[in-house]
Simulated assay, not measured.
Amino acid sequence: MQLLNWLEKIKLLYGLEIQENQIRPFGDGHIHQTYLVDLGDKKLILQRFNYQVFQYPERISHNHDILIREIDPQKLPFILPLPIPNIHSELFSVIEGHYFRLAPYVEGKCVNEVNSAHQAYLAAKAFAQFIVAGIHIKSSLLQESIPNFHDLQLRYQQLLQAVSSTQRQVTGELKELVDFYLGQKPLVEEYNFWKSLLPLRMTHSDTKINNLIYSDDFSKVNAVIDLDTIMAGYVYYDFGDLVRTVACTEGESSQNWENIKVDMPKYAALLQGFQEVGDGVFTSEEIQSLPFGGQMMTCIMGFRFLADYLNGNIYYTIHYEEQNLHRAKNQMLLLKALQDM
């Protein structure tokens, strides 16, 4: 285990006695290298941070520091496992050019799929409660951990550029997809409308279901995790990403084209969770914008998958040449279903 090369310095920086046999790889995350540290009386999560994906670790550290100072953990019904400061009060420890961090371990279950409307409801409530917990934080204080992450206007322009410079023959199914997505200009205009109207909030910005830890019996959410994408955003971002990933009858890589629809019980549960938590806290316009979020977040991923295919599959990991094309088709069918609701 390569981590052992840095173990002595990690022990010094955190004032811990850690033996080699107390560390093991943990989870199935694809971005950071994650380890469980079992000290007997307590467990911790140790990560070697991937600064190729997140190129501004100092911004993430800045945002986490704001959360530590500004959010009262007693007011949340779940845990935010934020990084533990080292002996220098730093949230990241840099060792030989590599970034490490330590965080509390939270018991429970992390899943990749929602199996019931109730699980969807709990997820929506948790992510909405996270936004509400930071509603008092000025959005201007937060830094962009991934610049322009959810900028639909920019993603549309990037698709236009990809279409104009592609080496692929834009015919047949590819032309159908290009025409569909370039025809989403009204959605881009609606995005700009909401942008001019809504307040910026602290959002999680990556509300996939595996960024929650449920209790073992799925009766509640124990923790909201993967807090690296926290930044200023709109409430409908977090709702919309849940809709895209939870309320579709098929996963984003599915080619069961005729089966790609909106799972209405899960969609209704997501909406109920956000509305209940946001009642009296979110503005009426924010509540009204939620359905747009599902369309917008589905569309932005369609833009990105299709642009990547046109650019020669240079960003997303693929297992066969047409996978990004098929992902874009998948998102097109979901977007059509959402627009037909």
Rank of each mutant, 00 (worst) to 15 (best):
G97F: 15
K266L: 07
H98L: 15
L80S: 07
L141H: 06
S254F: 03
V111Y: 10
I60P: 05
L91A: 07
D38S: 09
G108Q: 14
Q33I: 03
Q158V: 06
A120F: 07
M1R: 09
K195A: 03
K138W: 00
Y309P: 00
Y156A: 01
V53S: 14
M202S: 00
L13M: 13
E286S: 05
T298I: 11
D340G: 04
S145M: 13
K175Q: 13
I71E: 06
G273I: 04
A247S: 08
P186Q: 10
A269P: 10
Q169N: 09
S89H: 15
D216I: 01
D28N: 15
T171H: 13
I213D: 10
G278H: 11
I213H: 09
A117L: 08
I68H: 03
I135C: 04
T298V: 12
F218P: 11
T171N: 09
Y316I: 13
H118Y: 08
I314S: 08
F303V: 03
H98D: 12
G273Y: 08
G97D: 14
S116G: 09
N313G: 08
L325C: 01
F92R: 08
K109S: 12
H88A: 14
V281R: 11
I60Y: 04
E70N: 00
E58N: 13
Q157I: 01
V114R: 06
P77H: 09
E252R: 03
D206S: 05
L242N: 11
L7M: 12
H326P: 00
G294F: 11
Q143E: 15
L39T: 11
D217P: 01
L306P: 00
L154T: 01
A128V: 12
K125C: 12
T203Q: 02
K185H: 02
A337K: 01
S140Y: 01
R101Q: 11
L177I: 05
E286H: 10
L290N: 01
Y316V: 04
A307V: 02
H62F: 14
W6A: 14
A337G: 00
G134H: 08
T203V: 14
P186M: 09
L306I: 06
K75G: 15
S215H: 06
S89E: 15
L102P: 03
V37H: 05
Q143R: 13
V221Q: 11
I79R: 13
D65A: 14
G15T: 09
L160Q: 14
D263H: 12
R244A: 07
L306T: 05
G27W: 13
E252P: 00
Y316W: 12
I230D: 01
F239L: 10
H150W: 01
Q255R: 15
I60R: 00
I131E: 14
V178S: 03
G251Y: 12
I318K: 06
G40Y: 04
I213Y: 05
L4V: 10
N211P: 05
E20C: 09
Q169W: 01
E8F: 12
H64V: 10
P85Y: 13
H319M: 02
W6L: 04
E189L: 07
I300C: 11
A117F: 09
L154Q: 09
P291G: 04
